[in-house]
Amino acid sequence: MNSMDSSLKVEIGSYNSGNIPPLMHEIRHALRNLLDNDETTTIDLRGLPMAPGEQQQLLDILGKGEVSVQLDALGKSEITESSYAGVWLIIHYNNNKEVMGKFIEITRMPAILKTRTADMEESLAALQVKLEEV
């Protein structure tokens, strides 16, 4: 049994596709661009070939910052600012808690958090109705 255990040992974490450094550079450039030109960048993590464990490595490097928001629309979404201000991690889940999308957004405030004008207009009307009821 013991010999079998050792023969089945798989070394995890030794993979390195070399994709993390260029990605970190991309984030740095995006942050520079945000500062200089006020331009937002979004990176879709699904389109990048990652070795097992590499995505976790990347998230560990980015770390957790002060802000953590949970959104409840079409399933949960987790939006957290990394330890680097302006670098946000956005994970969209569906109602079954399956990951639907993973993005890194370099922005002052992720677009999905901002309240939409149309929503505010509808709210205004709704408030009006509520006040009239009262």
Partner: peptide, 8 residues
């Protein structure tokens, strides 16, 4: 589906 949901 809310507008945020639509954006998602």
């Amino acid at each position: 589906v809310s507008r945020r949901g639509f954006l998602k």
